[in-house]
Amino acid sequence: MKVEVTRESLANTPSAPEELEQRLVQQALVAEFGRYALRNHDLDAVLEEACRVAAEGLQVRFAKVLECLEEGEPFLLRAGVGWGPGLVGHAQVGADLESPGGYAFRTGEPVISNHLTRETRFRTPQLLADHGVVRAVNVVIRGDGEPYGVLEADSRDPGAFSPHDVAFMQALANTLGLAIEKEKALNDKRLVSREIDHRIKNSLMLVSSVLAMQQRNAVSPEAKAALVQASDRVGTIARIHDQLHRSATADSVEFGSYLRALARDLMGSLARNDADLTLEAESVDLAADRAAPLGLIAAELLMNALKHARRERERSHLGLSFRRDGDALELVVADDGPGLPAGFDPAQSKGLGMRLILSLVRQIEGTFEAGNHGEGARFIVRCPAEGPG
Rank of each mutant, 00 (worst) to 15 (best):
N174E: 15
S316F: 08
P338D: 11
L259A: 03
V207D: 01
R310G: 02
G326F: 12
F161C: 04
I141M: 06
L77P: 07
R106T: 08
R78H: 07
A250D: 12
V46R: 00
G80P: 02
T175G: 10
A328Q: 15
A31W: 10
M354Y: 06
L340P: 04
A347S: 13
P74L: 09
Q59H: 13
N187V: 08
N174Y: 04
D336M: 03
P163Y: 06
K64M: 14
E181T: 14
R311H: 13
D96I: 01
R272A: 13
P384R: 08
A218I: 05
D165C: 09
E48Y: 10
V137H: 01
R264S: 13
L87F: 04
L266N: 01
F75M: 09
H373C: 08
S113V: 03
L38T: 09
L43T: 12
Q92P: 01
D285L: 14
A91W: 00
L206G: 08
A212F: 11
D42R: 07
L116Q: 07
D335T: 01
S247E: 12
A263E: 00
S208N: 11
K350A: 14
E73L: 10
E375S: 15
A385M: 11
I196Y: 15
T13P: 04
H90A: 15
G84N: 13
S162D: 10
P341E: 10
A45Y: 07
L266R: 02
P293G: 06
G145H: 08
S209V: 10
G256T: 03
A50T: 05
D165H: 10
G387C: 04
A16E: 14
A171I: 04
P147E: 09
A79K: 07
E330T: 11
R315L: 12
R35N: 12
P341L: 06
E18H: 08
P125S: 04
E67R: 12
D42S: 11
E195F: 12
V192W: 11
R23A: 12
R233Y: 15
A309H: 04
V284G: 00
E4F: 05
E300P: 03
G94P: 02
D96P: 02
A225P: 05
N372G: 10
A347C: 08
Q92G: 02
A16S: 13
V5A: 11
L302R: 01
R246A: 15
G326E: 08
I112R: 00
A334M: 07
R39H: 14
V65H: 02
P346H: 06
V88S: 01
L29T: 03
G256L: 04
R233H: 15
E67F: 13
V53I: 14
Q215L: 10
G82Y: 03
D42T: 05
D44T: 14
